[in-house]
Design a protein around this nucleic acid. Structure first.
Length: 587
RNA sequence: UCGGGGAUCGUCUAAUGGUAGGACAGCAGCUUCUGGUGCUGCUUAUCAAGGUUCGAAUCCUUGUCCCCGAGCCA
């Protein structure tokens, strides 16, 4: 106890690779240490019936991360046991998404359907052992016989058919001699079990639908419970990680391993599903949003799908880092979307080059500028990273600045443009607003300013305080761009919580998208590649749209805005009275 | 009602009988040519009640609350 290892500063809080420890990693580590396994083998088992979303990303990072961390391997296995829901398109797209996330399954790509013949043989084995039978009850009757939480189930009248009869019937099921629902292979376990999964679970059902990989070879298909553990055993998976709702399937998972001559003994371990506030991942509901035209598709940048987040501008590292920070545990909860936004900004701040883009242009004319003169200023590409260098940005007597940076009536502590106020144009010079020009509706359409030639480069010549620094674009050189301002898709923390008579659709954020088509951006922004990310100074992080961006059609998606403490101050000032009342009530 | 799980700052997560720690959020300040970034400090938690123990988030008892389960879905 009192040896050198007791130094608290040296106490290891982390795993050997620096990632936080968790109960599953502890189990794996232990199994390796005791020699139970020589190598860890995990698997990620998606059903190819939809696109991957942020919830799947967590499972992927756990499955692949564990293998990576302990020098093992992770298989990608498609759980394709239900041809009525599954399609080849999804097996391709899911692979693309996982690769984009940065994971590699090498040659270990498998399909549950690869094992259909083996599973059929194992089903026959169970029949031969008297542990499975063909039931001829209708689906409705089976439900009635199963009972419920309150009542025990009762045995099917077909439960005691002879082995020979069951064998013959099962063969006839395979031959296609029965219609869907006419016959069902069930395990013979315990109709009175408190665990409903033990009440003679279905093993094989008849589905006369062609399968995307096996075609019409089969008209009977194994159920998830009869396929999953056996697939794990065939692949010598050591640790089969899944989410909490499979917890009471585990006894059944083990029952099959106990009663079948499987080649290895995997262990199922469950952890809590990943939930994010202001986000919803239910596949049916996401589909509904698309069908009702509330989002543009599965890759709409507001969608919590991997492809949606990719198009929005999320780097894969951010999604992986987020999952690591959230950790792995059995307690289910909702992760604050603010954590994801923090991880996002942290990454983007370090990696993105800066550029200047004016989203809502307002004309600014420098009255004491030599007519037609063009100056080039050196602007740092990334103040976080001096090695990113500088670029030359053209500057002239007519500029665009952001409307949000001007107020005719400056509020208290307003550092930006207003009549009589001096501000810095970033990396360029100091200008003072002398005059404002309005149109016939009284709207401000132009600011007349003078610049201080001593401030060339943006320095304050005499050390006078200039608090405000604004971004700008030279009007003569500006490019026009479309900018899509995305925000959270939902306005409420838990979008599934709805008022009486309402639906989750009522919780949509009406301002989740604003499209600006007349933005003015600096010329360098025409040289990006689709999916390139950039910070628009003082505004936020943006990416060149994966599909719509081209050198002659600039389209940017806002990934996330910069933190805006001014907006916070203004909000607080407006809500001041209310806050006081609240403080008083508390006292 | 039955079976399975869970309960630690506002949120997520550590502590495996020995100082309740971290991250996010919040608050305050410093720095700053992005009201960005960075830095510093502060606030805040063991579901409840009993018990065992020198010592309990951890072990025991009782209770409370929450989640999952009645597909021929996964």
């Amino acid at each position: 106890m009192t040896d050198a290892n007791n130094d608290p500063a040296a106490a290891p809080e982390d795993g050997s690779d620096g990632s936080p420890r968790n109960f599953i990693a502890d189990i794996v580590e232990d199994d390796l240490a005791t020699g139970k396994h020589q190598q860890v083998v995990t698997r990620f088992p998606p059903e190819p019936n939809g696109y991957l979303h942020i919830g799947h990303v967590k499972a992927i990072t756990v499955d692949f991360g564990l293998a990576e961390r302990f020098g093992g391997r992770c298989h990608l296995r498609f759980d394709d046991t239900n041809p009525t829901k599954e399609e080849q398109e999804f097996v391709d797209e899911i692979q693309a998404d996982i690769r984009w996330l940065g994971y590699d399954w090498g040659e270990h790509l498998y399909f549950a359907s690869d094992y259909f013949e083996q599973m059929y043989a194992w089903a026959v084995h169970l029949i031969e052992q008297g542990k499975a039978y063909v039931d001829s009850l209708s689906p409705e009757e089976i439900r009635e016989y199963r009972g419920n939480y309150f009542n025990k189930g009762k045995n099917s009248p077909y439960r005691d058919r002879s082995v020979e009869e069951n064998l013959a019937l099962f063969q006839r099921m395979r031959n296609g001699e029965f219609e869907e629902g006419e016959a069902l292979l069930r395990a013979k376990i315990d109709m009175e079990s408190g665990n409903l999964n033990f009440r003679d679970p279905a093993l094989y059902r008849i589905l006369k639908t062609p399968h995307h990989r096996t075609g019409d070879t089969w008209c009977i298909y194994p159920m998830y419970d009869f396929a999953h553990g056996q697939g794990d055993a065939i692949e010598h998976v050591t640790h089969s990680i899944c989410t909490l709702e499979f917890e009471d399937h585990r006894p059944l998972y083990d029952w099959f391993l106990d009663n079948l001559p499987v080649p290895s003994r995997p262990r199922q371990i469950e952890f809590a599903r990943f939930n994010l506030s202001y986000t919803m991942t239910a596949k049916r509901k996401l589909r509904q949003l698309i069908e009702e035209g509330r989002v543009a598709g599965w890759d709409d940048p507001r969608m919590p799908t991997v492809r949606g987040m990719r198009r929005r501008g999320y780097p894969p590292e951010v999604l992986r880092d987020l999952c690591e920070r959230v950790g792995v545990a059995k307690r289910d909860g909702i992760v604050d979307v603010g954590l994801m936004e923090f991880v996002l900004r942290e990454h983007l701040n370090r990696h993105c080059q800066r550029a200047m883009a004016v989203l809502r242009p307002l004309r600014l004319v420098i009255t004491n500028w030599d007519d037609g003169h063009v100056e080039h200023f050196e602007v740092p590409n990334n103040p976080e990273d001096p090695e990113a260098g500088t670029r030359s940005v053209p500057f002239g007597g007519v500029l665009w600045v952001d409307r949000d940076d001007f107020r005719e009536q400056a509020p208290r502590k307003w550092f930006r443009l207003a009549p009589g106020k001096e501000v810095r144009l970033r990396s360029a010079c100091l200008v003072t607003c002398n005059e404002i020009i309005k149109d016939e509706h009284g709207e401000v359409i132009e600011l007349r300013c003078t610049w201080d030639p001593q401030s060339r480069g943006g320095r304050s010549p005499d050390g006078r305080k200039v608090r405000g620094t604004l971004h700008w674009v030279s009007a003569a050189h500006a490019l026009t761009a479309e900018v899509r301002l995305y925000d959270r898709l939902f306005a409420t923390e838990d979008p599934t919580k709805v008022e009486e008579g309402g639906t989750f659709v009522d919780n949509l954020n009406p301002d989740s998208l604003e499209v600006l088509t007349d933005c003015k951006v600096e010329p360098s922004l025409a040289a990006l590649q689709p999916e390139d990310r950039v910070q628009f100074e003082r505004t936020g992080y943006f990416c060149a749209d994966r599909h719509d961006y081209a050198a002659d059609r600039l389209v940017f998606n806002r990934t996330i805005g910069l933190r805006d403490s001014w907006a916070k101050i203004e909000k607080k000032n407006k809500g001041g009275g209310k806050g006081q009342a609240k403080a008083k009530a508390k006292a």
